[in-house]
Simulated assay, not measured.
Amino acid sequence: MVSLRSPSRLPVVGVLAAGRTYRHLLYLLLAIPLGFLYSALFSFGFVFGLLSAVVLVGFVVLLATLLGARIAAGFERWLANRLLGTDLERYDDVPADTDGAVAGVRKYVDAASTWRGVGFLLLKYFVTVIAFVPLVALAFGLPLVLAPLRYPYVATFGESNGEPVTWAIETLPEALLAASVGVIGVLAALHVTNLVAYVCRQMATALLGETTEDEAGPVRESVADDGRDSARSDDGSSGTSDSAGGDDSAPFDDAFIPADAVDPDSDGAPVGDEDRP
């Protein structure tokens, strides 16, 4: 029987057919504007709040920044579940019932999930910087892949010392070479995309929420196995006792034997009428 292998499971080139690759790519595309937005808003909020903490408005700004960070962390958790393949739920570390406005605000400040969210948003800026690498490689590699269909043309790769870096593709061999370089660049960019997405998934799992996997399953199975073993042990012990109680090879039964029917010199065997005095 011939087994058909999924194209997405092929080495190196399978990344082109994997749907998760393009979800990861979309995540990185969204990470660039979101990373700069988080950096601008929360840097301003924390810095301005600390500088103006001598007056009441500074504390208000800091609290608003923390609450905004929680909202942004919730959005990032949703984004990770949709595009990175995680299955996260928000941390349940904020008390539901509090007395007074001060206690209502303090519960968010004391919650560890608030500061985990702040940590994730700070790391998201570095993800934004790294995300430029595969996206730029794709921007340069895709036009080269189409070189055999559009030559002659001049590919531009930026500037160096104020001069543009170009590649004039005028013949078919040059176009085929450019297409080969473009394919290698696209494959490398997609693999780097998956690598960066893997790092982001680990960050989200560690900082944005709890996994919804049922960790009590193995415990319940172990308890069930122990119960079955105990039942088997009980059955075995009861079977042994039954067999022992019902053994017909016992030397004596429970019938009453008169005392004068037992020979004192014997081992307890009954004496017949011919042996009596």
Rank of each mutant, 00 (worst) to 15 (best):
F157P: 05
R23A: 15
L62V: 11
D229H: 10
N161M: 07
P143N: 01
V181W: 14
D263S: 13
G158Q: 00
A17E: 02
A244I: 09
L62G: 11
L29C: 07
P270C: 05
D110N: 00
D229L: 09
L121T: 05
H24A: 12
P152C: 14
D229S: 09
V102A: 14
E170A: 15
P7C: 05
A179T: 12
G14N: 04
A69V: 04
D214S: 09
L84D: 04
L50K: 04
S6W: 14
G246F: 13
R201F: 00
R201Y: 01
E213F: 14
D87V: 11
L208V: 05
H24K: 05
L4I: 14
F132A: 15
L50M: 09
V165L: 05
A80D: 02
V183N: 02
V15E: 05
A197T: 03
D267L: 08
D254H: 02
A231N: 13
G182F: 07
D110Q: 02
L83A: 13
A259F: 08
D267S: 09
F44I: 06
I169C: 14
R82W: 12
G85A: 06
S222V: 10
R77G: 04
F120T: 05
V94P: 06
S237C: 10
L26A: 15
S249H: 02
D275T: 11
A179H: 12
L66T: 09
P95H: 08
T205N: 10
Y91T: 07
S39R: 09
